[in-house]
Design a protein around this nucleic acid. Structure first.
Lengths: 110, 110
DNA sequence: TGCTAATACCAAGACGGTCAATGTATGGAG
DNA sequence: CTCCATACATTGACCGTCTTGGTATTAGCA
């Protein structure tokens, strides 16, 4: 999987995952891996900066917890984050159908 | 439309367009615009470098022509280009269904 | 003891996209 | 006739995001 494709959908996917409840970096990686059918292995080097970015933009909030001796930083989507998520979801759909249009595959998918 | 989404699909779309016959930069922009339903306005600053890149990789060949006083540089897909196109198409499908999986929208689209 | 998993973070570098400028030629508005 | 828009290609500066890979901590296991 060409990593360049991820650019721009990373944040969308993170917001989506967090829209279903708070989570932390390490777990988000697992969730995305599972839900993508094993295709997307988010790298820490892109995940954490993205998380910080989204937090700076107030789309996420965060808090630390302790779990069996290990520190976890939970991220929680904000109201603004949900709004952005909705916008990005629809942007993604527009984008995907645009690409499919160019590829001559506008109908259906597996 | 967030331009970051384009990263990685630009070349795919260009190869696709060229798989249907030789074309030149300016025309490729129009073709993609039309076939994407008016959504993708390729910028010259990304299009031409991409064209040159693909040519360097021997996925495209090129030749100049003259048309009503204006110079045109036609690009033509190579056999290697077609192979790459096939690979990228399937990569795109995997990618799109991965994203849709994360978004919980694996079925159908308009 | 030392390795692995869980967990978070950061710095350096590559790469591709945007903006905007440059250059040439044709054709139409005034 | 002049000016501007359109057709067409190229390039350079800038920016943002991704990858790689290294740091750091704690728990648990060989």
């Amino acid at each position: 999987m060409d990593p360049k494709l991820l650019t721009g959908t990373l944040e969308l996917m993170m917001l989506e995952v967090l829209s279903q409840g708070p989570s932390y970096g390490y777990e988000i990686v697992q969730t995305v891996l599972t839900r993508s059918g094993g295709h997307f292995e988010l790298k820490e080097g892109s995940l954490y900066p993205a998380l910080h970015r989204l937090e700076r933009q107030k789309l996420l909030g965060s808090y630390w917890t302790e779990h069996e001796g290990r520190r976890r930083k939970y991220y929680k989507i904000t109201a603004a984050g949900r709004k952005t998520l909705a916008a990005r979801r629809s942007e993604w759909q527009t984008f995907a159908s645009g690409v499919n249009g160019v590829l001559g595959m506008e109908y259906g998918l597996a």
